[in-house]
Each structure stands twice: as structure tokens, then as C-alpha cells.
């Protein structure tokens, strides 16, 4: 007997990263934030040249080194050891952030606590009286990159929506995010609100809406 099924499986962190990597064309200069965004680099096919930027002054970041090839002077913004690909370069912090703030990056992929239906981004502090706040390059990236995509879980661990009408967490930037990739869906932030491009197999728009605190509609061209 055929019944309406609610059997759908959320994407893993690696699957979210792989889904994002599909949408990055050859030739883009891309900055990846810490967490799921960092995993995107490993999912870009080797034959597709994408240049990864790191805030601490590197273009052309490659995968993590084998132990024998580790260079203690070569770290990324997350302070992990990395490698440099052919065509890569080193530069100082003011130039590095000129690339970011001067709108030279095609894309930045960031994690987030919350994103609003207008693309407001909250990803740097959990409250106004955070005990030891840290901002790093989040605000520079959020206003400076040509495109800002967010990679995150659709809801919090306790099931609260992270996609909302108005962010409750302190803002990183207003009207910054243009696309959201979650474990459940791919959403575009448009002047007409949030549009659903994709959902995991078996998930209905109604079920996705229940987990989202802002109105959703299906993208017309999906």
C-alpha cells in the first residue's frame, strides 16, 4: 500500500560541502570559512582549477600535507597546516584584506548561527555580552566578497530554526547572504524572499517550512 512517506535523510557535513563544490566554476577566487566550508575544497574535482584564498596572506591553498612534507610556516586562517598549489602566492595582511574588501573574491562560503530572509548574517557572537568575543575576518568577508554563501545545519540541536525573519544573534552584516546550503535544502535569498531550489529526497515543502521561521516558496526555475 502506498502511503505518504516522511522518510528523508539529512545530508552529512561532507555531503553539504560536496553539494556546494558542484556550484563553484573554474577560475573563481574563493575564501572558505572554518568548519563545513573548509571541507568544500576537498570536493572540487582536481581538473577544475579554483583558487582558494586564506586571510593570513595566501592564494592557492592546497590540501593538508603528508607528515613528511609539513611546512611549519604554511598555515591557513584556521591555523591548520596546508600546502601551496602551483600558481600560488604570499602577501601581507593589508593586501589580503584589500582582496576581500575590494570585492576581488568571487565567493566566500561561511558558517552561520542564523540567516534572515533578507540575507542578514549572524555568525560571530552568540550574545551582546559574550564573555570573550572574537570577530576575525567574518565582517570583512561578509561585506567584501562578490557572493556570500552559507553552509549550515537547517535547525539547531534542539530543533529551533536557524533561518529566520530577523536574526536574534548579533549581526555580522546586513543583506549579505545570497544562497544557503543546509542539510535539508538549497535556498536562494531574493528580493522576493526565500526560494527553495532543492530539497533532500522525500522532504516536502510543508515539512521544510515547519523547520524554517520565514516564508518559503519553490523557485520558479528549479
Amino acid at each position: 500500500m502506498a502511503t505518504a512517506t516522511t522518510e528523508w535523510v539529512p545530508l552529512s557535513r561532507h555531503q553539504i560541502a560536496a553539494r556546494i563544490a558542484q556550484d563553484i566554476p573554474e577560475g573563481w577566487y574563493v575564501n572558505l570559512g572554518i568548519g563545513v566550508p573548509t571541507l568544500v575544497a576537498d570536493n572540487v574535482p582536481k581538473e577544475r582549477e579554483v583558487v582558494f584564498h586564506s586571510e593570513n596572506g595566501i592564494l592557492g591553498i592546497g590540501p593538508a600535507p603528508e607528515k613528511a612534507d609539513l611546512d611549519p610556516w604554511l598555515i591557513n586562517a584556521g591555523k591548520e597546516y596546508v600546502t601551496l598549489l602551483p600558481g600560488g602566492s604570499f602577501f601581507h595582511h593589508a593586501d589580503s584584506f584589500a582582496m576581500i574588501r575590494g570585492r576581488h573574491l568571487d565567493l566566500c562560503v561561511l558558517g552561520a548561527y542564523e540567516v534572515s530572509s533578507r540575507g542578514d548574517l549572524a555568525n560571530w557572537a552568540r550574545s551582546d555580552d559574550d564573555t570573550a568575543p572574537a570577530v576575525g575576518g567574518a565582517m570583512d568577508l561578509a561585506v567584501g566578497a562578490q557572493r556570500v554563501w552559507v553552509a549550515m545545519q537547517h535547525v539547531t540541536k534542539s530543533g529551533e530554526p536557524r533561518i529566520v525573519e530577523t536574526c536574534r544573534y548579533p549581526l555580522t552584516a546586513r543583506a549579505s547572504v545570497t544562497r544557503i546550503y543546509t542539510d535539508l535544502a538549497v535556498l536562494d535569498v531574493t528580493p522576493d524572499g526565500l526560494q527553495v531550489r532543492e530539497m533532500v529526497a522525500g522532504l516536502s515543502l510543508e515539512a521544510l517550512q515547519e523547520k524554517t521561521a520565514a516564508p518559503l516558496r519553490l523557485a520558479a526555475d528549479r
Binding site: H93, P133, V135, G136, M139, D140
Partner: peptide, 10 residues
């Protein structure tokens, strides 16, 4: 005094 990283450099 907390300063965004690019603003600190600039």
C-alpha cells in the same frame, strides 16, 4: 577593543 581583522590591518 575588538576590531575586524581587515579593519585592524587597514
Amino acid at each position: 577593543e575588538l576590531v575586524p581583522q581587515g579593519t585592524l590591518a587597514e
